[in-house]
Protein backbone atom coordinates (compact mmCIF):
# COMPACT_ATOMS: atom_id res chain seq x y z
CA UNK A 1 0.00 0.00 0.00
CA UNK A 2 2.83 2.33 0.84
CA UNK A 3 4.27 1.54 -2.54
CA UNK A 4 1.08 2.44 -4.33
CA UNK A 5 0.97 5.87 -2.72
CA UNK A 6 4.58 6.49 -3.58
CA UNK A 7 3.88 5.78 -7.20
CA UNK A 8 0.94 8.10 -7.36
CA UNK A 9 3.11 10.65 -5.64
CA UNK A 10 5.70 10.68 -8.35
CA UNK A 11 3.48 12.46 -10.84
CA UNK A 12 2.58 15.60 -8.84
CA UNK A 13 6.21 15.95 -7.80
CA UNK A 14 7.26 16.58 -11.35
CA UNK A 15 4.84 19.44 -11.66
CA UNK A 16 6.81 22.18 -9.85
CA UNK A 17 9.78 21.54 -12.10
CA UNK A 18 7.64 21.86 -15.20
CA UNK A 19 6.03 24.98 -13.81
CA UNK A 20 9.48 26.45 -13.25
CA UNK A 21 10.47 25.86 -16.82
CA UNK A 22 7.28 27.46 -18.09
CA UNK A 23 7.84 30.36 -15.70
CA UNK A 24 11.39 30.85 -16.92
CA UNK A 25 10.19 30.71 -20.51
CA UNK A 26 7.57 33.35 -19.77
CA UNK A 27 10.13 35.64 -18.14
CA UNK A 28 12.44 35.20 -21.13
CA UNK A 29 9.57 35.89 -23.50
CA UNK A 30 8.46 39.00 -21.62
CA UNK A 31 12.06 40.18 -21.46
CA UNK A 32 12.66 39.67 -25.17
CA UNK A 33 9.40 41.34 -26.14
CA UNK A 34 10.51 44.31 -24.04
CA UNK A 35 13.69 44.30 -26.08
CA UNK A 36 11.78 44.43 -29.40
CA UNK A 37 8.97 46.72 -28.30
CA UNK A 38 10.94 49.42 -26.47
CA UNK A 39 14.35 49.59 -28.15
CA UNK A 40 14.73 53.19 -27.00
CA UNK A 41 14.08 52.44 -23.35
CA UNK A 42 16.55 49.63 -22.81
CA UNK A 43 18.45 51.57 -20.13
CA UNK A 44 15.24 51.90 -18.16
CA UNK A 45 14.37 48.24 -18.70
CA UNK A 46 17.81 47.22 -17.46
CA UNK A 47 17.18 49.25 -14.34
CA UNK A 48 13.88 47.40 -13.92
CA UNK A 49 15.77 44.11 -14.01
CA UNK A 50 18.32 45.25 -11.47
CA UNK A 51 15.58 46.48 -9.12
CA UNK A 52 13.70 43.23 -9.72
CA UNK A 53 16.72 41.41 -8.34
CA UNK A 54 16.57 43.66 -5.28
CA UNK A 55 12.87 42.93 -4.79
CA UNK A 56 13.48 39.20 -5.25
CA UNK A 57 16.14 39.36 -2.57
CA UNK A 58 13.72 41.18 -0.26
CA UNK A 59 11.11 38.51 -0.91
CA UNK A 60 13.52 35.88 0.37
CA UNK A 61 13.73 37.67 3.71
CA UNK A 62 10.20 39.03 4.05
CA UNK A 63 8.20 36.48 2.11
CA UNK A 64 10.03 33.29 2.93
CA UNK A 65 11.33 34.03 6.43
CA UNK A 66 8.76 36.54 7.70
CA UNK A 67 11.31 39.19 8.64
CA UNK A 68 10.12 42.69 7.74
CA UNK A 69 12.94 44.86 6.46
CA UNK A 70 13.05 48.47 5.36
CA UNK A 71 16.78 48.38 4.74
CA UNK A 72 17.26 45.93 1.90
CA UNK A 73 18.98 48.55 -0.28
CA UNK A 74 22.01 48.22 2.02
CA UNK A 75 22.75 44.90 0.31
CA UNK A 76 21.98 46.25 -3.15
CA UNK A 77 24.14 49.32 -2.63
CA UNK A 78 27.01 47.23 -1.29
CA UNK A 79 26.99 45.21 -4.49
CA UNK A 80 26.77 48.32 -6.66
CA UNK A 81 29.63 50.11 -4.92
CA UNK A 82 31.82 47.01 -4.78
CA UNK A 83 31.41 46.38 -8.51
CA UNK A 84 31.86 50.07 -9.30
CA UNK A 85 35.01 50.45 -7.22
CA UNK A 86 36.46 47.23 -8.61
CA UNK A 87 35.75 48.39 -12.15
CA UNK A 88 37.49 51.72 -11.62
CA UNK A 89 40.45 49.89 -10.19
CA UNK A 90 41.00 47.82 -13.27
CA UNK A 91 38.80 44.76 -12.89
CA UNK A 92 36.62 45.19 -15.94
CA UNK A 93 35.33 41.74 -16.79
CA UNK A 94 31.54 42.01 -16.38
CA UNK A 95 31.05 38.47 -15.08
CA UNK A 96 33.77 39.00 -12.51
CA UNK A 97 32.20 42.33 -11.53
CA UNK A 98 28.85 40.64 -10.99
CA UNK A 99 30.54 38.04 -8.80
CA UNK A 100 32.27 40.78 -6.81
CA UNK A 101 28.93 42.50 -6.34
CA UNK A 102 27.29 39.26 -5.23
CA UNK A 103 30.05 38.54 -2.72
CA UNK A 104 29.92 42.09 -1.35
CA UNK A 105 26.14 41.79 -1.01
CA UNK A 106 26.48 38.42 0.71
CA UNK A 107 29.02 39.74 3.20
CA UNK A 108 26.80 42.74 3.93
CA UNK A 109 23.88 40.33 4.28
CA UNK A 110 25.83 38.32 6.83
CA UNK A 111 26.55 41.43 8.86
CA UNK A 112 23.05 42.87 8.51
CA UNK A 113 21.46 39.55 9.39
CA UNK A 114 23.63 39.06 12.44
CA UNK A 115 22.51 42.48 13.73
CA UNK A 116 18.85 42.28 12.74
CA UNK A 117 18.30 38.81 14.15
CA UNK A 118 19.04 40.14 17.61
CA UNK A 119 15.64 41.80 17.78
CA UNK A 120 12.06 41.02 16.78
CA UNK A 121 9.10 42.99 15.53
CA UNK A 122 9.35 46.76 15.51
CA UNK A 123 12.91 47.07 16.90
CA UNK A 124 13.99 44.69 14.14
CA UNK A 125 12.39 46.93 11.55
CA UNK A 126 14.14 49.93 13.09
CA UNK A 127 17.47 48.11 12.99
CA UNK A 128 17.03 47.46 9.29
CA UNK A 129 16.41 51.17 8.71
CA UNK A 130 19.33 52.21 10.91
CA UNK A 131 21.66 49.86 9.04
CA UNK A 132 20.83 51.21 5.61
CA UNK A 133 21.08 54.79 6.89
CA UNK A 134 24.44 54.02 8.48
CA UNK A 135 25.79 52.65 5.21
CA UNK A 136 24.32 55.64 3.38
CA UNK A 137 26.17 58.06 5.66
CA UNK A 138 29.34 55.99 5.43
CA UNK A 139 29.19 55.99 1.62
CA UNK A 140 28.59 59.74 1.68
CA UNK A 141 31.51 60.35 4.02
CA UNK A 142 34.00 58.07 2.28
CA UNK A 143 33.94 60.18 -0.86
CA UNK A 144 37.55 59.32 -1.73
CA UNK A 145 36.31 55.79 -2.31
CA UNK A 146 32.70 56.21 -3.36
CA UNK A 147 32.54 59.63 -4.92
CA UNK A 148 30.29 60.78 -2.09
CA UNK A 149 27.21 62.72 -3.07
CA UNK A 150 28.44 63.17 -6.65
CA UNK A 151 28.32 59.44 -7.10
CA UNK A 152 30.89 57.05 -8.44
CA UNK A 153 31.48 57.37 -12.16
CA UNK A 154 34.04 56.67 -14.83
CA UNK A 155 33.56 52.92 -14.98
CA UNK A 156 34.38 51.27 -18.25
CA UNK A 157 33.45 47.61 -18.13
CA UNK A 158 35.09 45.43 -20.77
CA UNK A 159 32.95 43.83 -23.47
CA UNK A 160 31.05 40.76 -22.34
CA UNK A 161 33.02 37.64 -23.31
CA UNK A 162 35.29 40.09 -25.10
CA UNK A 163 32.66 40.53 -27.83
CA UNK A 164 29.52 42.39 -26.70
CA UNK A 165 30.26 45.98 -25.79
CA UNK A 166 28.22 47.92 -23.25
CA UNK A 167 27.26 50.59 -25.76
CA UNK A 168 25.10 53.67 -25.67
CA UNK A 169 21.94 51.79 -26.62
CA UNK A 170 22.34 49.36 -23.77
CA UNK A 171 21.47 46.28 -25.79
CA UNK A 172 24.25 44.14 -24.34
CA UNK A 173 23.54 45.38 -20.84
CA UNK A 174 19.86 44.56 -21.13
CA UNK A 175 20.34 41.08 -22.54
CA UNK A 176 23.08 40.41 -20.01
CA UNK A 177 20.71 41.52 -17.24
CA UNK A 178 17.93 39.36 -18.59
CA UNK A 179 20.20 36.30 -18.59
CA UNK A 180 21.29 37.09 -15.05
CA UNK A 181 17.68 37.40 -13.94
CA UNK A 182 16.82 34.05 -15.50
CA UNK A 183 19.76 32.34 -13.82
CA UNK A 184 18.99 33.89 -10.43
CA UNK A 185 15.30 33.09 -10.73
CA UNK A 186 16.04 29.46 -11.60
CA UNK A 187 18.46 29.11 -8.70
CA UNK A 188 16.03 30.73 -6.26
CA UNK A 189 13.19 28.49 -7.45
CA UNK A 190 15.35 25.53 -6.49
CA UNK A 191 16.43 27.07 -3.18
CA UNK A 192 12.94 27.85 -1.97
CA UNK A 193 12.01 24.22 -2.58
CA UNK A 194 15.10 22.77 -0.96
CA UNK A 195 14.95 21.37 2.58
CA UNK A 196 16.44 24.69 3.66
CA UNK A 197 13.67 26.61 1.92
CA UNK A 198 11.00 24.51 3.61
CA UNK A 199 12.56 25.13 7.02
CA UNK A 200 12.51 28.88 6.28
CA UNK A 201 8.80 28.66 5.46
CA UNK A 202 8.35 26.80 8.70
CA UNK A 203 10.22 29.45 10.64
CA UNK A 204 7.97 32.09 9.17
CA UNK A 205 4.89 30.24 10.38
CA UNK A 206 6.04 29.00 13.76
CA UNK A 207 9.62 29.26 15.03
CA UNK A 208 8.76 27.30 18.17
CA UNK A 209 7.65 24.29 16.17
CA UNK A 210 10.90 24.37 14.21
CA UNK A 211 12.97 24.45 17.38
CA UNK A 212 10.91 21.55 18.73
CA UNK A 213 12.14 19.61 15.72
CA UNK A 214 15.69 20.24 16.90
CA UNK A 215 16.54 22.92 14.34
CA UNK A 216 18.28 26.16 15.29
CA UNK A 217 16.61 29.17 13.72
CA UNK A 218 19.52 31.60 13.78
CA UNK A 219 21.94 29.89 11.36
CA UNK A 220 19.11 29.15 8.93
CA UNK A 221 17.92 32.75 8.88
CA UNK A 222 21.47 34.04 8.68
CA UNK A 223 22.08 31.82 5.66
CA UNK A 224 19.00 33.28 4.02
CA UNK A 225 20.32 36.78 4.68
CA UNK A 226 23.57 35.80 2.94
CA UNK A 227 21.72 34.38 -0.08
CA UNK A 228 19.48 37.43 -0.14
CA UNK A 229 22.56 39.64 0.01
CA UNK A 230 24.14 37.82 -2.93
CA UNK A 231 20.99 38.33 -5.02
CA UNK A 232 20.67 42.00 -4.08
CA UNK A 233 24.38 42.51 -4.67
CA UNK A 234 24.02 40.98 -8.14
CA UNK A 235 21.28 43.50 -8.87
CA UNK A 236 23.44 46.35 -7.62
CA UNK A 237 26.42 45.22 -9.68
CA UNK A 238 24.23 44.96 -12.77
CA UNK A 239 23.06 48.54 -12.25
CA UNK A 240 26.66 49.68 -11.83
CA UNK A 241 27.77 47.96 -15.05
CA UNK A 242 24.76 49.08 -17.07
CA UNK A 243 24.60 52.74 -16.02
CA UNK A 244 28.31 53.08 -15.24
CA UNK A 245 27.34 55.32 -12.33
CA UNK A 246 26.70 54.43 -8.69
CA UNK A 247 24.82 57.02 -6.68
CA UNK A 248 24.01 57.37 -3.00
CA UNK A 249 20.38 56.58 -3.83
CA UNK A 250 21.40 52.96 -4.41
CA UNK A 251 21.93 52.58 -0.68
CA UNK A 252 18.97 54.51 0.68
CA UNK A 253 15.92 54.12 2.86
CA UNK A 254 13.77 55.37 -0.04
CA UNK A 255 14.87 52.57 -2.34
CA UNK A 256 14.36 50.04 0.46
CA UNK A 257 10.84 51.31 1.12
CA UNK A 258 10.04 51.32 -2.59
CA UNK A 259 11.27 47.75 -2.87
CA UNK A 260 8.92 46.72 -0.09
CA UNK A 261 6.04 48.50 -1.82
CA UNK A 262 6.82 46.70 -5.08
CA UNK A 263 6.96 43.37 -3.29
CA UNK A 264 3.66 43.95 -1.54
CA UNK A 265 2.10 45.08 -4.77
CA UNK A 266 3.13 41.92 -6.56
CA UNK A 267 2.58 39.48 -3.74
CA UNK A 268 4.75 38.48 -0.83
CA UNK A 269 6.08 34.95 -0.70
CA UNK A 270 6.00 34.25 -4.43
CA UNK A 271 9.08 34.77 -6.54
CA UNK A 272 7.02 35.76 -9.57
CA UNK A 273 5.12 38.25 -7.38
CA UNK A 274 8.35 40.14 -6.85
CA UNK A 275 8.84 40.42 -10.60
CA UNK A 276 5.27 41.47 -11.36
CA UNK A 277 5.30 44.08 -8.60
CA UNK A 278 8.57 45.57 -9.80
CA UNK A 279 7.46 45.83 -13.40
CA UNK A 280 4.08 47.38 -12.61
CA UNK A 281 5.49 49.81 -10.06
CA UNK A 282 8.39 50.98 -12.16
CA UNK A 283 6.36 51.26 -15.35
CA UNK A 284 3.82 53.44 -13.52
CA UNK A 285 6.57 55.45 -11.88
CA UNK A 286 8.24 55.95 -15.25
CA UNK A 287 5.10 57.45 -16.75
CA UNK A 288 3.32 59.18 -13.85
CA UNK A 289 6.35 60.52 -12.00
CA UNK A 290 7.55 62.09 -15.23
CA UNK A 291 4.35 64.15 -15.29
CA UNK A 292 4.34 65.17 -11.61
CA UNK A 293 6.32 63.54 -8.80
CA UNK A 294 3.73 64.53 -6.18
CA UNK A 295 0.89 62.95 -8.11
CA UNK A 296 3.05 59.85 -8.20
CA UNK A 297 3.42 59.85 -4.40
CA UNK A 298 -0.31 60.32 -3.95
CA UNK A 299 -0.97 57.45 -6.31
CA UNK A 300 1.46 55.08 -4.58
CA UNK A 301 -0.02 56.04 -1.23
CA UNK A 302 -3.55 55.39 -2.41
CA UNK A 303 -2.53 52.05 -3.89
CA UNK A 304 -0.90 51.00 -0.62
CA UNK A 305 -3.98 51.94 1.38
CA UNK A 306 -6.18 50.08 -1.08
CA UNK A 307 -4.01 46.96 -0.88
CA UNK A 308 -4.16 46.89 2.91
CA UNK A 309 -7.90 47.53 2.99
CA UNK A 310 -9.18 45.50 0.09
CA UNK A 311 -6.61 42.98 -1.03
CA UNK A 312 -4.47 41.88 1.88
CA UNK A 313 -4.55 38.30 0.63
CA UNK A 314 -5.52 38.77 -2.98
CA UNK A 315 -2.90 40.89 -4.62
CA UNK A 316 -0.28 40.50 -1.98
CA UNK A 317 -1.03 36.89 -1.19
CA UNK A 318 0.17 36.16 2.28
CA UNK A 319 0.67 39.66 3.58
CA UNK A 320 -1.14 39.22 6.82
CA UNK A 321 -0.04 35.69 7.46
CA UNK A 322 3.52 36.88 7.55
CA UNK A 323 2.87 39.64 9.76
CA UNK A 324 0.53 37.71 11.99
CA UNK A 325 3.61 35.73 12.73
CA UNK A 326 5.63 38.87 13.19
CA UNK A 327 3.28 40.06 15.88
CA UNK A 328 3.08 36.61 17.37
CA UNK A 329 6.82 36.48 17.51
CA UNK A 330 7.07 39.93 19.03
CA UNK A 331 4.52 38.92 21.61
CA UNK A 332 6.36 35.77 22.42
CA UNK A 333 9.65 37.55 22.85
CA UNK A 334 7.98 39.81 25.36
CA UNK A 335 6.32 37.08 27.34
Amino acid sequence: MANATLQSAAAPRLRPLGRDLIGLALIALAGLSGYWLFPDNLAFLTRVISVALLVLSLDLVVGYCGIASLGQAALYGAGAYAAGIACINGITDPILLILIGAVAGAVTGLFTGAVMLRAHGLPQLVLSIALVQLLHEAANKASWLTGGSDGLSGMAPAPLFGVFEFDLWGRSAYLFGLCLLLVVFAVLSLIVRSPFGMVCRGLKEDPLRISALGIYAFPVLLKMFVISGAVAGTGGALAAIATQVVGLDSVSFELSANALVMLVLGGIGHLYGALIGTVIFMALEHTVAAINPFHWMTLVGAVLIAIVLFAPRGLSGTLDQIAALLTRRGGRAGR
Partner: peptide, 28 residues
Protein backbone atom coordinates in the same frame (compact mmCIF):
# COMPACT_ATOMS: atom_id res chain seq x y z
CA UNK B 1 -9.89 51.99 12.79
CA UNK B 2 -9.52 49.20 10.24
CA UNK B 3 -5.93 48.45 11.18
CA UNK B 4 -6.07 48.48 14.99
CA UNK B 5 -6.25 44.69 15.03
CA UNK B 6 -4.13 44.06 11.99
CA UNK B 7 -0.53 42.95 11.73
CA UNK B 8 2.43 45.28 12.05
CA UNK B 9 3.25 44.93 8.38
CA UNK B 10 -0.27 45.98 7.38
CA UNK B 11 -0.01 48.96 9.68
CA UNK B 12 3.37 49.94 8.28
CA UNK B 13 2.12 49.73 4.70
CA UNK B 14 -1.13 51.55 5.35
CA UNK B 15 0.53 54.40 7.23
CA UNK B 16 3.31 54.75 4.66
CA UNK B 17 0.50 55.01 2.12
CA UNK B 18 -1.19 57.73 4.16
CA UNK B 19 2.14 59.56 4.44
CA UNK B 20 2.66 59.47 0.67
CA UNK B 21 -0.87 60.77 0.08
CA UNK B 22 -0.44 63.59 2.59
CA UNK B 23 2.88 64.62 1.04
CA UNK B 24 1.44 64.53 -2.46
CA UNK B 25 -1.69 66.48 -1.57
CA UNK B 26 0.04 69.02 0.67
CA UNK B 27 2.50 69.85 -2.04
CA UNK B 28 -0.22 70.08 -4.64
Amino acid sequence: RRIYDRSELSQVLMTIGITFCIIGITNY
